[in-house]
Design a protein around this nucleic acid. Structure first.
Length: 605
RNA sequence: GGUCCUGUAGCUCAACUGGAUAGAGCAACUGCCUUCUAAGCAGUAGGUUUCAGGUUCGAGCCCUGACAGGAUCACCA
């Protein structure tokens, strides 16, 4: 039984729940499991902080909803120290906690050196994200992927996992050879240095050139009487690309050298982009190393009877008992398909890191692929089988619909980030808020704001939903945006500077003896107290949007507090110190929460 | 055609996993800078949650069936 009133809210909630269990036992002679009982936040329009819904228990109480709630409320009030008052509306029992409970919650949070970091759980998780192709630069879709992957990684760390961020680079294959062939014919030996073009964009340029040339040749073949399909397969440049792929696989020096140098340009370009994005990786895998993996797993599957061989020698898995169909895992000629390679890489990752979970941040167009992959690994009895998870996210659409490189509607990642930063710059200058900034500080601020706006915009939406990005209108700096939250932080930083300056003590000790809370102050504590829960939820759902939404709610609540209550004009010193401390905790929570989203917060803006 | 995902205010998104009168932001309108940053705060208006049934004390959420949008169903990756 809870004898000591704990100041931790998890305990506070537990305390109420366990008292409720006790109540059911003593009042109604009924045992209820702890997990069956749950509290929810009381809706704004009612008095109280937590609400218990009694409808499900009417059979047990054998009373009407109001009477049931009232009886439970009375019991809580007299048996649970923190419960000060209650009211009943229909079947809803609204519970008010004493101000001292809230103050002790505040103090606990305020003095927590590990705010926003749950204890280590001893588990390891790999998060694979980004995974670019090396034939063209990153675009808007990649931004969602990278921001998601990075944020999910940070969130999992905050949940106590050891996290390995992995990037599986698609650096080989026919699409790479297309860029190479085009470069060979039309490149005239240009390099990023001679052309002044960023490496990844330079490779992308030749990928586009390939496409143009291929189309041109295709048209010529069609004029000569070939069908469209045959023409597309047989243009000289396409045949050459395929031949180049074979040479590459055979390790022909000239081809491999070209491949190496073009890829190195691309990596240089990517590094710049990744740095701007603020993402990083602990481990790189390259498909050029892994594309032959997986055949041993195919053998194993055959032996175990999980796979079977068809007459022509191709190898298949039958997943019809799992609601899918048959799927090829190895071609008749013994060469790999995509999934062969992925089985091998999956196993390699496990050999390297022995993770408990492995998350793949990959777009939802590959739902089926990962469904198959994971089912296969489970059928093979892999110990990590149940820990495999596809974080499937929706496409980012433009007002004109899908991004199409052929129609030139692809929004380039580098361009977009720069546009955001430029917009932030002009907006900030307009507001005239950078007095006293050095040019370097101003530049840094623009980047923080522009990237903050962009990241928040892409992360606030539930990952699995497709989303619309309107370059003209989508990114705002007001309302439910990154800069709004950043602004809230800057405001507090300003308050704290002033508090330091006039030497106000707002340490936890200075708050002893405080006994009254304004509604806004209590609301703010209630929200601050949800931080840990939101981190957990975001981790369980692999969903930064949970946290993003929370950051907005917190900032909004703080701004209300800021507008309603005076701080430096407050006469009561204890109250003044408390409001500064409350502000400081809010700033700390915002900073930490935004960090988990990969977003920086400024001290001035 | 089969399978999967999505459908909520004019627009972009929420809704704590089945709870109270469905909430925010943008856009529109009305107030608030002689006081800690107005990138802010308060307020007005905006809804048959695509439609039709069903399950139950109670449904935006679960089930069935339509309708609409998207993805996927290659010896491509």
């Amino acid at each position: 039984m809870p004898s000591v009133a704990s100041s931790n809210i998890m305990d506070l909630e537990k305390q109420i729940i366990s008292t409720l269990q006790q109540a059911f036992k003593e009042l109604f002679d009924h045992e209820v499991g702890e997990s069956e009982l749950s509290l929810q936040p009381t809706r704004k329009e009612f008095e109280g902080s937590y609400t218990f819904v009694v409808f499900p228990y009417l059979k047990v109480t054998k009373l009407n909803p109001e009477a049931s709630a009232a009886k439970l409320g009375e019991f809580l009030k007299s048996n649970c120290k923190s419960v000060q008052e209650f009211n009943v509306v229909k079947g809803f029992l609204n519970i008010s906690l004493s101000e001292t409970s809230w103050l002790s919650v505040f103090k606990k949070l305020y003095t927590n050196p590990q705010l926003g970091q749950l204890p280590l759980n001893g588990k390891k998780v790999m998060v694979e994200y980004s995974s670019p192709n090396t034939n063209k630069p990153l675009h808007l879709g990649h931004l969602r992927n990278n921001f998601l992957g990075f944020s999910v990684s940070e969130i999992l760390k905050a949940n106590g996992y050891e996290v390995i961020k992995a990037n599986l680079v698609n650096d080989r294959g026919i699409h790479i050879c297309k860029s190479m062939v085009a470069y060979k014919h039309f490149g005239n030996g240009e390099t990023p240095e001679t052309s002044g073009i960023k490496g990844d964009h330079l490779a992308g340029k030749y990928y586009v050139i390939f496409d143009k040339e291929h189309k041109k040749q295709s048209r010529e073949l069609i004029e000569k009487g070939l069908s469209e399909e045959d023409a597309n397969k047989n243009t000289p440049i396409m045949l050459e690309a395929q031949e180049m792929l074979r040479s590459w696989e055979a390790g022909e020096k000239e081809v491999v050298d070209l491949w190496k140098s073009m890829n190195s340009w691309v990596y240089e370009g990517f590094n710049v982009t990744y740095k701007k994005m603020g993402v990083d990786f602990d481990k790189f895998y390259y498909e050029s190393d892994t594309y032959l993996l997986g055949k041993n797993i195919v053998d194993e599957g055959l032996k175990k009877g999980v796979f079977f061989k068809k007459e022509n020698g191709s190898i298949w898995v039958d997943l019809s008992d799992e609601g899918l169909d048959e799927k090829l895992v190895l071609r008749a000629d013994g060469t790999s398909v995509y999934i062969t390679q992925d089985m091998g890489t999956c196993e390699l990752k496990y050999e390297d890191f022995q993770f408990d979970k492995s998350v793949y941040v990959v777009g939802n167009e590959q739902d089926y692929h990962f469904d198959v992959l994971f089912k296969i690994m489970r059928k093979l009895g892999r110990p990590y089988g149940d820990g495999l998870y596809h974080l499937s996210y929706g496409m980012v659409d433009l007002p004109s619909g899908k991004m199409k490189s052929r129609e030139g509607t692809v929004v380039d990642a580098d361009d977009l980030m720069q546009e955001m930063i430029d917009t932030a710059a002009s907006h900030t200058k307009e507001l005239g808020k950078i007095d006293g900034f050095t040019p370097e500080q101003a530049e840094e601020l623009y980047e923080i704001l522009g990237m903050g706006a962009l990241k928040y915009f892409l992360l606030k939406v539930d990952p699995k939903k497709r989303m619309l990005f309107n370059p003209q209108e989508s990114i705002e700096f007001q309302g439910n945006t990154g800069p709004f939250i950043q602004y809230s932080h800057a405001r507090i930083a300003s308050i704290l500077r002033k508090a330091e300056q006039i030497d106000i003590n707002y340490s936890a000790d200075a708050l002893e003896g405080l006994s009254h809370l304004e509604d806004t102050e209590r609301e703010l504590i209630v929200i601050l107290n949800e931080f840990e829960k939101k981190i957990q939820l975001a981790g369980e759902d692999y969903s930064p949007s949970v946290l993003a939404q929370y950051m907005f709610d917190l900032a909004k609540e703080y701004n209300r507090f800021y507008a309603e209550l005076p701080i430096f004009n407050e006469r009561d010193e204890k109250v003044q110190s408390f409001r500064i401390a409350l502000s400081a905790l809010t700033a700390k929570t915002i900073r930490r929460g935004m960090q988990l989203l990969g977003i920086k917060v400024p001290d001035r803006m």
